[in-house]
Amino acid sequence: MRHRRYPFIVGFLIVPVALYAVLVIWPYIQTFGYSLTDWSGESQTMHFIGLKNYTALLSDHVFLTALEHNGLLLVFLPVITILLALFFAFMLNVGGQGRTGGVQGVAGAAFYKVVFFFPQVLSVAILAVLFEAVYRSDAGGLLNGVLVKIGLENSQNPIEWLNDPGTVLWCLLAIMVWQGVGFYLVLFSAAMQSIPKEIFEAALLDGAGRAQTFFKVTMPLLWDSVQTAWVYLAIAAMDFFALVSTLTPGTAYGGGPDYHSEVLSTYLMRNFLYFGKSGYACAMGVVILFLTLIVSVLALRATRRERIEF
């Protein structure tokens, strides 16, 4: 029977693979082609300039700054989001003080789950409007308003959250964490619920506390989900376009103040559409593609562990 399996599979795959090739692979190849030219994006005339765009990237300090910011986000976004989500998921599913014994979440867990998940249903556009009000640069902003009210800040000298080189990137990171935690909380909750209760009960009988249960039982059994979350979050950290372009100061797609929140995607767009340096932008696109691929592979590799069957 084996020899008839492949034509059968190919028969099913040919249409999606063809679509994938035309709509995904081909544009990537085209982008690579354009990245070797001085295309302006406004007309069809362009000249082949070899790898000049790529060598220019290496000495472009804005590009390198953007790369550094994406690197920072790449480290902090997954770590903070996953840790918070794991903690909350643990509390909601296992962390309750059982009155009659057994394993359960804290009181009102179902309600908390909805509350935590809520930010996930908001679109990025709404997030931008919402956090524009939160981070507003005078005492009219939510954050500054509270700080002024409790006397930690003078209303004549408010913190300009998104216009301060020291805070802007962390403010954006906080938004992504706030939005992401709920989703990964639900993901981890589902995974936790599939862990047999007996395992927890056994740990409980052996006298394991909350912390021990979490690190010795829950974490190892959730590793597959954590791995998935890591890859997703790493890809999200490579993007950040929407938040930076809408919330941060600066001409054409934000990135300010003075490039302190610049990320690869916003710098790419500014070059592509605003500066008329589309060939250069395509070179950036190719670099981002490879970086994202490398990051995904590394994330999967680094988190690979022995699977525990249950």
Binding site: P249, T251, G256, P257, Y259, R270, Y274, F275
Partner: peptide, 19 residues
């Protein structure tokens, strides 16, 4: 010269913020 104008934008914002 849009790239020049953008550089000036950034620098002016820094002056206004006293940086």
């Amino acid at each position: 010269y849009s790239a020049f104008a953008t550089d000036m934008d950034n620098a002016s914002a820094e002056v206004m913020a006293n940086r």
